[in-house]
Write a protein that binds this DNA or RNA. Structure first.
Length: 276
DNA sequence: TTAAATTCCTGTAAGC
DNA sequence: TGCTTACAGGAATTTA
């Protein structure tokens, strides 16, 4: 699943691959993947534009477009989406929804088996104002995201801390994998009410979050299901996951069997001894 | 306001 | 073997 580290990896790679490139043609194969504007306007709005910059916000990929209007091509990969830069000669895969023909013989392809991804075009403020994009919480790797900020955001909340970590309005970019990994590294039970965490626990969680995200970015993300980076390569962080997908396996720290529960509708794995 | 449940979507794996 | 069913989950939407 593309979470913050996976999307960051793609943004880094696309920066080198497509920045400065011009969209010569836009082929929208599945109009329903576009959430804004209407599919026709989406295609017209992209054609002829230059991609000035590629950045990331939460799990969203942002492509700043030429024209001086501050327009962005926004790509969210959902669960199974991929956004790759390939040669036009590469065979077209199944479940392909958007193809951007760029100059210098490059193609950007959006593929998504389960169609949970989404495509948008517009100014960031307009998209947020129109309710097409959520108002995201702080970036966990931003220097301004301090333990105090996290503590303030968890205060008074009764939902399980893991459910709160998955809420993109509380903090942006975390998904099921890194929420579980961060709770394990922090030694916190994921079903603890968010507001029950003291200052020291929050500080541990904050440190664990940053540590696991930085490590995952360095490893180009986790390829658990079918995630591929912008060059079509799998990441390596899945080999270093300590709890996600390891229900019933021994805890790497104490050897006790890892427990699986459901939280916020998601499978959740933790060590009942190491996480309190 | 907050929290939980439901919905979308399709490939995979388990069970009969 | 072949069919049915459950499950995976990000985020919008609905319900309580």
């Amino acid at each position: 699943m593309p979470e913050l580290p996976e999307v960051e990896t793609i943004a880094l790679q696309l920066r080198a691959q497509v920045e400065g490139g011009t969209v010569l043609a836009c082929r929208l194969l599945t109009p329903t993947m576009v959430r804004h504007p209407e599919p026709g306007a989406f295609v017209r709005g992209l054609t002829g534009r230059r991609i000035e910059a590629v950045t990331r916000r939460g799990k969203y990929l942002l492509h700043a477009l030429s024209g001086g209007e501050g327009k962005l091509l926004v790509v969210h990969l959902g669960m199974t989406g991929s956004w790759t830069c390939v040669s036009p000669e590469a065979p077209e895969p199944e479940h392909l929804h958007l193809v951007l023909e760029l100059d210098r013989g490059r193609q950007l392809r959006f593929r998504d088996v389960r169609r949970f991804g989404r495509l948008l075009l517009g100014r960031e403020a307009d998209l947020i104002g129109a309710g097409k994009l959520p108002l995201l919480g702080p970036e966990p790797l931003d220097p301004a995201f301090t333990p105090e900020v996290l503590h303030r955001r968890l205060r008074g909340r009764r939902a399980p801390v893991k459910a709160l970590l998955l809420d993109q309005r509380l903090v942006a970019g975390l998904g099921n994998i890194y929420a579980d990994e961060a709770c394990f590294r922090a030694g916190l039970r994921p079903d603890r009410p968010g507001g029950s965490l003291g200052r020291r626990s929050v500080a541990r969680l904050h440190g664990a979050l940053r540590e696991v995200l930085r490590e995952a970015i360095a490893n180009r993300g986790s390829s658990v299901d079918d995630y591929r980076d912008a060059l079509g390569e799998p990441g390596r962080q899945q080999e270093r996951l300590l709890v996600y997908g390891r229900a019933g396996c021994p805890c790497v720290r104490c050897g006790r069997r890892l427990t699986a529960i459901r939280l916020a509708g998601r499978s959740t794995v933790f060590c009942p001894r190491c996480q309190r």
